[in-house]
Design a protein around this nucleic acid. Structure first.
Lengths: 242, 242
DNA sequence: ACATGATACTGATCTGCCTCAGTCCTGCTT
DNA sequence: AAGCAGGACTGAGGCAGATCAGTATCATGT
């Protein structure tokens, strides 16, 4: 059976999926819903929210704190699972906001737990996918904690490129990116003003340009070196679970 | 059947465990090993490392970057799972270093995957535990990205207290803490010098003292307010999965 | 044709935190 | 008892990045 969805394709990188498992995954996809850009799909504190599998468009997950400032934890792109934690914890611990117009399949909690019961290998696969997401958050943590603004920005652009390439939405030399400098600043933990200056510096150094919604990587080697980028945490060679 | 280990106690917060499941969990605990403080249990890039369930002592997980600086991602205390990602990814993406003398039970990969296959509810439970860890990492990310040094330190001390209380190693008013100011600085993403100044400020404000390995919380309300602390991500009211 | 609102971009000033360069104290080694 | 290492602690000076206060450009709607 062919791998239909980007989500199945992602899981297949870890667990060699049987036909039964693939069809169980397909059944997981519930009603397809559309969301406009800007209005939250899930918000902090919401109980019994749904989970989704993202089919089209970009979203970001973020947390708000007292001062009104927010920290974007990660962006999600097609094939990514949304709101798994919100479901497992019953109450959402973060907001999810569409960056662009978005289409996503709803996943019902009971269906999810039921699928785990009937096809335990899929539970392991989802655990793997969640661990991969955690690895990404850890990488952001390290970036914000110990990389300076320029390295951090470079790293971010490289990571995004690598992720998009894995789902067929970009190449090593460039990709379309709907993020504003404000969104970038909320994700990178710096001011929008500074994001702007850093992007100018990267441009002047001949490393990357990010203009009109398009990222072009001009000097990959230089960028990799600046960012100390190691994509081990995104890339694995073949399914672990046969 | 009684819940023997802190690990089982933690999982029971999410999944109501049957006798069969509890004994499956117990069988997961392999050889008990001891490690001296300071020498890494697992290091970045190591392949086929084991996972462990921490029984005694504290460890930290950290990543090193080019400049030789490191970022501590989290500390683990008894009952926590160590190196799950290293196992699922086949190669470790971070280091694990004992902060004190440590005892831990080794978990073999095959046993783990086997347990998931035979008792799928345990797979869901481990997924939940992993998600809880991710929630903690997310909270650190937000802290480093958007909280200033004082708020961040306050938040850290509160979180540690809450976690220790859950496993019976401390109370709301204080706990023993074997961390040096250097370790703190690596975790909080600031210099040791600054950690020292911030701790002094917190002490002078009458909020907390951290001296001679002991944290005493003197003004809980004030500290909670300063840190904008919300323990929803650590605390859940009863098992989700009956 | 003219407001309105996003987003990109810039210069000037201010500040939180880092770095350097120490001191003091305690416990360990020889 | 001296010597030494690790950790807590302090002051002075510097800098990365924040904040403030704009301008320029483009796409909306009216």
């Amino acid at each position: 059976m062919a791998l239909q969805t980007p989500f199945a394709r992602k899981l297949a990188a870890f667990v060699a999926l049987s036909d039964d498992e693939i069809s169980a995954l397909d059944k997981l996809h519930g009603r397809r819903k559309a969301f406009p850009a800007g209005r939250d799909i899930v918000h902090q504190g919401q109980v019994n929210s749904s989970a989704y599998i993202l089919a089209k468009g970009w979203v970001c997950s973020y947390k708000v704190l007292m001062g009104g400032t927010r920290q974007i934890v990660d962006f999600q792109i097609p094939g990514d699972f949304l709101g798994l934690r919100s479901v497992l914890f019953r109450t959402a611990d973060h907001n999810i906001e569409p960056v662009t117009k978005v289409e996503a399949s709803e996943v019902m909690v009971e269906d999810l737990l039921d699928t785990f019961r009937k096809t335990p290998r899929l539970a392991t696969a989802v655990l793997w996918a969640a661990s991969r997401d955690e690895a990404m958050v850890v990488e952001h943590l390290v970036g914000i904690g110990r990389r300076d603004a320029k390295e951090r920005t470079a790293h971010f652009l490289l990571e995004l490129g690598a992720r998009l390439k894995l789902v067929g939405l970009g190449s090593i030399s460039g990709y379309d990116c709907p993020l504003s400098q404000y969104l970038l600043s909320d994700a990178l933990g710096m001011s929008a003003v500074h994001v702007n200056r850093v992007l100018r510096e990267l441009r002047e150094d001949g490393l990357v340009t990010f203009q009109q919604g398009r990222v072009e990587i001009h000097d990959l080697a230089g960028l990799l070196k600046l960012a100390d980028f190691d994509m081990a945490y995104l890339d694995h060679d073949g399914p672990l679970l046969k």
